[in-house]
């Protein structure tokens, strides 16, 4: 997902930059304002509709599978209770099985924290906020066994950057 975000951003910024550079190159070639504005109005209309129409499928696709899940009551998920406090994580279990959904029930004991799961390559896989008085449910299915890290991604005070823990994912 990160690579997609990066590529989309780079390409769109480059297209935008090309438009600005083109106008700079043509700025010295003087023409009547009415002539330029007339053509620009048509291009503006096309641009508006292209953005609006393109946005519809993008919105539908990206909203199709949201990460928000209610807590399950049956035993289909592995449940891990996670509590953040300055500056450590307490997990109810340190090992889960790959290939089956894990339900992280995340809260905080003092200030707000951010519960973020990183793999062994330190790539961020998923996250949710850890907030006092609330339990956020994050469901994730680990494809690969291994050692995973939990980092705090919501600034919470002087030792925020050291608020880490680990858990293992084992094969079924």
């Amino acid at each position: 997902m990160q690579e997609i975000a990066w590529s989309v951003t780079l390409w769109l910024v480059l297209v935008l930059a090309a438009a600005f550079i083109y106008v700079v190159m043509k700025s010295g070639d003087k023409a009547e304002a009415a002539v330029v504005q007339g053509a620009a109005g048509k291009i503006r209309s096309v641009l508006f509709w292209v953005l609006l129409v393109a946005g519809v499928p993008v919105t539908m696709v990206t909203l199709a599978d949201l990460p928000y899940a209610a807590a399950t009551t049956e035993g289909e998920s592995q449940v891990v209770d996670a509590v953040g406090s300055q500056w450590s994580w307490a997990l109810s279990q340190s090992s889960v099985v790959s290939g089956r959904p894990v339900e992280f029930r995340v809260t905080a004991a003092d200030a707000s924290h951010g519960f973020a799961i990183y793999n062994s390559s330190m790539t961020l896989l998923a996250q949710t906020q850890a907030m006092p008085e609330y339990t956020n449910v994050l469901r994730y299915t680990f494809a690969e066994p291994g050692t995973y890290k939990v980092l705090c991604l919501e600034y919470c005070g002087v030792d925020h950057h050291n608020m880490m823990t680990e858990f293992t994912v084992v094969a079924p």
Partner: peptide, 26 residues
């Protein structure tokens, strides 16, 4: 004008929920 518009692009990308899941607070 370019900087403002260019900055809106990664902001909108990050405003996508499934993208925000791996970019929020990075």
């Amino acid at each position: 004008a370019f900087g403002w518009a260019a900055g809106a692009i990664p902001a909108i990308v990050d405003g996508t929920i499934v993208v925000n899941l791996v970019l929020h607070n990075t």
